[in-house]
C-alpha cells in the first residue's frame, strides 16, 4: 500500500499508468460489448480512411480500427503474461542463487549466463517454427521463458547483498528457514525493483510478439498488432501507399511500450534515491 502511495507521487508514473490502463480497458471493454467481428471483410482491399471506416481497410478489406483494438488486447495479454512468467522465473532463480550461494549459485549462474549469451530472439524463432499450432498463451510462455535471465541476474545481485543485512541474521536467529527468509525478509525489500523490472518485461514481451508476428510466426487464429504489420508487409501496403495499414499498429505498439517505459522511469525516480532531488 505504501508502495502505491509513494508511486502516485510521481507524475511520470501516473501518466504512463493512465495511458496504459486507458488502452487496456478501452480494448477490453470494446471487445466485450462490441458485436463487430474483426475478421469480417466489410469493404475492398486498402480502402483509405473514411467516415465508415475511420482507419480504412486492410488487404482483406477488414476494418483497421477494429483490428487495431483487438490486436491491442492481444498484445497486452501476451506482454503481461510473458512479463509475469519471466519475472517469476527470474525472481525464483535469482533469489535462490543469491541466497544459497556456493555450488547452487554457480550452477544457476551458468544457466543464466548461457541464456544470456544465446540470443533469445533466435530461440524464440526456432521454438515458434517448431510448433505447429501457436496459441497466444503458448507464445507468451515461450517469450517469458526466453527473457528471464536479466531479471535473474539483477535479483541475484540484490539478494546476495540483502542476505548479509542484520535483519536477515535476526530472522535466522529466530529459526526461520530459507523459503521463509526469502519471502519475508528479502523479497519485500526488492519488491519495488521487481515491479520495475516487470514493467520492462511487459514492454519487451509486447515488442517480441510484434517481432515474431512480423516474421510470420505470430499466434494462429488471432489478430495482433504484429500480425497486422506482417500482413501489411506481405501484401505490399508500403509500396501501394496504404499507410493506414501499417502506421496505426506501429504507432500503437510505440504508445504501449512508451507508456510502460514512462512508468518505469517514474518508478526509478521514486525508488532510486540518487535520482531523487
Amino acid at each position: 500500500m505504501k508502495l502505491l502511495k509513494t508511486l502516485l507521487k510521481s507524475k511520470k508514473f501516473i501518466i504512463g499508468l493512465c495511458v496504459f490502463l486507458l488502452l487496456l480497458f478501452g480494448s477490453l471493454i470494446f471487445t466485450t460489448i462490441s458485436s463487430h467481428d474483426p475478421a469480417e471483410m466489410i469493404g475492398f482491399l486498402y480502402e483509405p480512411p473514411s467516415k465508415e471506416h475511420l482507419l480504412g481497410t486492410d488487404n482483406f478489406g477488414r476494418d483497421v480500427l477494429i483490428e487495431l483494438i483487438y490486436g491491442m488486447k492481444t498484445s497486452i495479454y501476451v506482454g503481461l503474461l510473458s512479463g509475469i512468467i519471466a519475472t517469476f522465473i527470474g525472481t525464483t532463480i535469482g533469489t535462490t542463487a543469491g541466497y544459497l550461494g556456493k555450488t547452487i549459485d554457480n550452477i544457476l549462474n551458468s544457466i543464466t549466463n548461457l541464456f544470456l549469451v544465446i540470443p533469445s530472439f533466435v530461440i524464440l524463432i526456432l521454438l515458434s517454427v517448431s510448433l505447429r499450432s501457436r496459441s497466444l498463451t503458448l507464445l507468451a510462455m515461450i517469450i517469458g521463458i526466453t527473457s528471464w535471465p536479466w531479471t535473474a541476474r539483477a535479483v541475484r545481485a540484490q539478494t546476495s547483498s540483502l542476505k548479509t543485512r542484520e535483519h536477515v541474521n535476526m530472522a535466522k536467529l529466530n529459526g526461520e528457514g530459507y523459503v521463509e527468509i526469502v519471502l519475508k525478509e528479502i523479497l519485500p525489500y526488492m519488491l519495488s525493483y521487481i515491479f520495475m523490472v516487470f514493467v520492462l518485461q511487459v514492454a519487451s514481451g509486447i515488442l517480441s510478439e510484434a517481432g515474431l508476428s512480423m516474421l510470420g510466426l505470430g499466434p494462429s487464429n488471432t489478430i495482433s498488432l504484429g500480425k497486422m504489420l506482417s500482413w501489411a508487409l506481405l501484401y505490399e501496403a508500403v509500396r501501394t501507399g496504404a499507410w493506414w495499414a501499417f502506421i496505426p499498429p506501429a504507432l500503437t505498439i510505440a504508445i504501449i511500450t512508451f507508456s510502460l517505459l514512462y512508468m518505469n522511469t517514474g518508478m526509478d525516480e521514486v525508488f532510486n534515491p540518487r535520482l531523487r532531488s
Binding site: E166, H167, Y189
Partner: peptide, 11 residues
C-alpha cells in the same frame, strides 16, 4: 547487533 534499524524488517 549494532544498528537497531537494520536489525528489524522495516515492513
Amino acid at each position: 547487533f549494532q544498528d537497531p534499524f537494520s536489525s528489524f524488517n522495516q515492513f
